[in-house]
Amino acid sequence: MTPLLFVGMIGALVALTLYFFATKAPILPPLISEHGQLIDDQIYLTLIITGAIFAIAQLGLAFLVYKYRHREGAKATYLLGSHKLEYTWSAATLVLFVGLNLMGQKVWAEMHLNEHPKPAIEVEVTGLQFKWYIRYPGKDGVFGRRDVNMINDAEGNFLGLDKTDPKGADDIVMGSLTVPVGVPVVMKIGSRDVIHNFGVRELRVKQDAVPGLAVYIPFKATQTGSYEVACMELCGYGHYQMRSQLNVVTMAEYTKFLADNAP
């Protein structure tokens, strides 16, 4: 009874898990970035490989449990192991796991190691409890000075822009991120209080916003539309409502957006 039940339980586990992953996985949220394709490919490849490992290992376990269940008069085999088998499966898993990992390094290099594309639209993303503020450098292409002592939430100066700095006079600060489609963008991500994380599911981008540190993340959006920005690092009681928006628009709309919001 018990071994049969075990086989049934493992069988159900494997069948249900594979069914749900096979039917749910192809609908990762829609992809809207160029580099994201590489991430998705890697996720699917990993899904297939691990799906096979999962099924083989679980069913193998169930098979052994059933086949070698205690029966009257049965005797166990005195078996101590096999060096050959140990070497074989160690080498095989090493090659498989490390190989799989190395395949994913291309997109990592693109995002983090290689020189970022130039020219690119540069935006500054700042997290604070519990909002995001995005700054555009304006016509001059240069960000003005920021000073923590000039922060004044009541007056809407959340980033502490130095009004006396001419470079900052044309800076635009918005509560959501608007970028043109098909153009490289580099975000400079930071925080003014605790650690946040700028995450957009569809963009396949997720990066901690760390106070005292600037992290640069490039992307190129491939599809217009509006997408939700979520904070992905616990930042306090309002963490769950630190929501913003990514608007991917045409170049013409983007130009108009900048002109409309210029100070």
């Binding site: 018990t2 071994p3 075990f6 290992a57 193998g60 376990l61 052994l64 449990v65 070698y68 269940r69 205690h70 029966r71 049965a74 005797k75 166990a76 085999t77 078996l79 192991g81 096999s82 088998l85 140990e86 499966w89 160690s90 898993t93 090493l94 796991f97 490390v98 799989l100 990992n101 190395l102």
Partner: peptide, 28 residues
Amino acid sequence: VMTMVVGVPSAIKTFNWLGTLWGGNIRF
């Protein structure tokens, strides 16, 4: 890469657990 390497001893253990059941006389 090191994280994937740590998967190897974990896999060794799993294989050996299955190997321990192989040819056994299992009491449930």
